[in-house]
Design a protein around this nucleic acid. Structure first.
Ligand SMILES: [Zn+2]
Ligand SMILES: [Zn+2]
Ligand SMILES: [Zn+2]
Ligand SMILES: [Zn+2]
Lengths: 129, 129
DNA sequence: AATTTAAATGTTATAATATAACACTATGTA
DNA sequence: TACATAGTGTTATATTATAACATTTAAATT
């Protein structure tokens, strides 16, 4: 089990507590009182946290979310649902989906080691509005 | 059928001719001789071209690729394979995959109108190296 | 054809996201 | 201790993207 460094812990905690994905400079702003003053300190911690699967990057939003899926130790197979109205993001944990995608083979004979899927739409709350 | 404006045409053509996804500022550099001088001119054309499905954005790379899939009029369901070694990107056109994903329903009852999937791995060429 | 509306353009400035380079410190291992 | 690896602090800079405003072009409506 990986033990987080000081900066990694600070930055993971703030992302983990956040109800929504956080952007790097919003994280920076929020951790300045804890002595983290430069973008690079944030990005280095983010890189590591992504690498070990504690957080994921929502590529379409340039934002980071804590892994909601305890089995997801490494960020190899990620899927998210994103509400285009309220921007709520949820990590999808569906074994049928992950099985289907992990076994997917294309014609070109490419061997995949990783995927990222982002669904967009309206969440239940925003649909009924 | 949508007819492209002058800037949209110039920018689509350069992306369409490119063997690899192009980044916005690389596009800008390449079209300056055609009178397009500012980032905004590029981004506005890119936005429109994405909207009408002539190009797609590869989110993990902040780069743009021409749609390889004539049936893909609108960018509602996109899938790509990305080689992490040579950065070759291919649009996946697989009806089983698109059917599976278009019909996917999550537990939260969210209705999806769009998805984007990016597979990562090594292409055939890079595997045998 | 004249009027109106919507879409696209040109331009300057600036915001937001991310990395390079270098010196230094902490931690684990032989 | 000596060595290797990972993490930190700092300054500067690169890259990606949008705001705001004036103007022009194209398309739709009368
Ligand atoms: Zn996860
Ligand atoms: Zn919502
Ligand atoms: Zn397409
Ligand atoms: Zn390759």
């Amino acid at each position: 089990m990986h033990t987080l460094s000081k900066n990694q812990r600070i930055i993971f905690d703030i992302i983990d507590k956040s109800p929504e994905p956080m952007k790097a400079y919003s994280i920076l702003f929020n951790v300045q009182k804890k002595g983290i003053k430069a973008p690079l300190q944030v990005y280095r911690a983010l890189d590591k946290l992504v690498e070990i699967g504690k957080i994921h990057k929502i590529e379409s939003r340039n934002a980071f979310i804590a892994c909601q899926n305890s089995s997801c130790q490494v960020s190899k197979a990620t899927a998210f649902s994103i509400c285009e109205s309220c921007e709520k993001v949820t990590e999808i944990n569906n074994s049928s989906l992950s099985k289907y995608l992990s076994n997917f083979k294309d014609k070109a004979g490419m061997k995949y080691s990783k995927y990222n899927l982002e669904f967009f739409g309206l969440c239940k709350k925003c649909t009924t509005k």
